[in-house]
Design a protein around this nucleic acid. Structure first.
Length: 489
RNA sequence: GCCCUCAUCGUCUAGCCGGCCUAGGACGCCACCCUUUCAAGGUGGAGAUCAGGGGUUCGAAUCCCCUUGAGGGCACCA
């Protein structure tokens, strides 16, 4: 019986929930659910300067929106808490003391200015920048005299001067770094906060994390973590570094590529199911043909072995297509309620509330296969609700017709339609189709002008269904308005 | 500059324990069908000499080496 799988998603509350970040959360969650393990959320807020108010809530919102529920973490608690690093400072201080007394770490009193100059010179000499270990061997006397001067300094980890550090990555295999290529990195900052390296290693150990699944950009710091695990005598987790998500220019997806917040896509009318499906397929695949995968199947089939190694470009067009697929598959009533809520928000105030659910229920089938994002819904159906339509008269005149013939056609339509007792799509079509022939114009021309008269636009849902839903009164009124427009013009 | 990683259609990818691959699917694109517009749907098409070059082998996208390109990292940021 293998050890219990415990994975974590450890975001920093420094901004919006980035799609790349959330994809990492998704893979962790998928793995935990697939293995029947635990998914833990830990907030890594050790950078006081970059902390952003509300960022943690936004991240948690994004997780909730996608249905990525966590077993331990903020709001839900757990046996390994607290799950916010700024509340665990004493733990890190104890860990640092341990390293200090075992000789794996040392105090450093170099000023930021000196460090910066040092790096500048190194770069000028085309050497790799890195700490020159000036404080590595200072003795107790020197140390106390420096402290006496009021210098607080930082604590650095002692990297072995020789040898190499190797670790196994589930996705990339064996990776080796020469210890000489690493410098003595800071583990405790002068403000008393630990750095990521120290805090994450200590916490992953304490929280009994079995697999560290994180973004690719961490592979270069992993040997440092390995060295930390060894210095502490901790058992190491299994590492898996995920390929990163790229922008269209193949560099790491960031703000300059456009909007990267998952919440933005939610607000733009993307469905969480579609986003989940899309993100899962960014760097992972089930087989050679499956594109649409349900939440349950995702969990059932997710496997780390099938995660790719190369970075993947975030393709908005494919996301959009997928979103359309999910809208088309959506249960009718669910969609009705979605649209109802959107209309309530978006329709102008003069449209009376509450909006009729029954009416929306009749409209929905006409737009379900036309929607790519939910946000498009209001503008697609607003003409069903508006009292008067605004459009330019020219729209009424179909190519090949003039104003007079158009007016004539609409008058004939009005006449014919006024006498109808039955007001159904089938019936209307049955009556109107022959009219075109009688008027000696193409059906497309007739239907086109009626469409504009009745909907105020050239592109709309199918005409007769639309008229049926709109109702006789509204159609007659709108035909009259259109005729008036043509006659006056 | 140094270290690490990656490399199949424009994009996401299958294949990568060698022969089933004259490289499969999907998005996008084009055409046609359906059709009152727009979609959706259907059919078909263009699109990758598997980054390039060497090997190994009867046979390589698949194994090995080199080159190139791309990305990531090199903070008292994560």
């Amino acid at each position: 019986m293998p050890n219990q799988v415990r994975v974590r998603y450890a975001p920093s509350p420094t901004g919006e929930p980035h799609v790349g970040n959330i994809r990492t959360a998704l893979f962790n969650w998928l793995f935990a659910r697939h293995m029947g393990g635990s998914f833990i959320v830990r907030i890594e807020d050790t950078d006081v300067a970059r902390r952003v108010d509300g960022a943690m809530d936004a991240i948690l919102d994004a997780l909730r929106w996608l249905g990525l529920d966590w077993d331990e973490g903020p709001e839900v608690g757990g046996n390994y808490g607290p799950y916010v690093q700024s509340q665990r400072l004493d733990i890190y201080h104890r860990a640092v003391d341990e390293l200090l007394s075992s000789g794996h770490a040392y105090h450093c009193y170099c000023t930021p200015q000196r460090l910066q100059e040092m790096r500048q010179e190194q770069t000028n000499r085309k050497e790799p920048p890195g700490y020159d270990r000036q404080c590595r061997d200072i003795n107790e006397d020197e140390r106390s005299s420096l402290e006496a001067q009021g210098l607080t300094g930082v604590v650095r980890f002692k990297i072995p001067l020789e040898g190499e550090t190797t670790f196994h990555d589930l996705i990339r295999g064996e990776i080796t770094f020469a210890n000489q290529t690493m410098d003595d990195f800071v583990i405790l900052k002068s403000d008393g906060y630990p750095t990521y390296h120290l805090a994450s290693v200590v916490d992953d150990n304490l929280m009994e994390i079995s697999h560290v699944m994180r973004s690719d950009e961490w592979v270069s710091s992993t040997p440092k973590h390995v060295l930390l695990y060894d210095a502490f005598g901790y058992e190491k987790p299994i590492f898996a570094h995920l390929p990163i998500i790229l922008g269209t220019d193949r560099s790491k997806l960031s703000k300059r590529h456009g909007v990267v917040s998952v919440l933005h896509y939610r607000d733009e009318g993307f469905l969480p199911e579609a986003m989940l499906n899309f993100l899962a397929l960014l760097g992972w695949s089930l087989d050679d043909h499956t594109e649409i995968i349900s939440h349950d199947d995702l969990i059932r089939h997710f496997a780390i072995e099938r995660i790719g190694k190369a970075g993947a470009i975030f393709d908005l067009e494919k996301l959009t297509w997928m979103n359309g697929m999910y809208i088309r598959q959506m249960d009718r009533n669910t969609l009705v309620h979605h649209i109802l809520r959107l209309l309530d928000d978006e329709l102008p105030p003069e449209v009376p509330r509450p909006i009729s659910e029954e009416y929306v229920h009749a409209i929905t089938p006409l737009v379900q296969e036309r929607l790519k994002t939910m946000k498009e819904a209001p503008s697609l159906v607003d003409f069903f609700f508006l009292e008067s339509l605004e459009y330019s008269t020219e729209l009424l005149i179909q190519s090949g017709l003039d104003s007079a013939r158009t007016a004539n056609a609409l008058e004939s339509t009005l006449q014919l339609v006024t006498g109808q007792e039955v007001w159904s799509a089938e019936h209307l079509e049955q009556e109107l189709r022959p009219l075109a022939e009688k008027l000696e114009i193409k059906t497309g021309q007739l239907f086109g002008t009626i469409r504009v008269a009745v909907t105020g636009r050239k592109v709309a849902p199918p005409l007769f269904e639309t008229m049926a839903v709109l109702g006789k009164d509204r159609c007659l009124t709108r035909l009259n308005v259109a005729i008036g427009l043509l006659r006056d013009g």
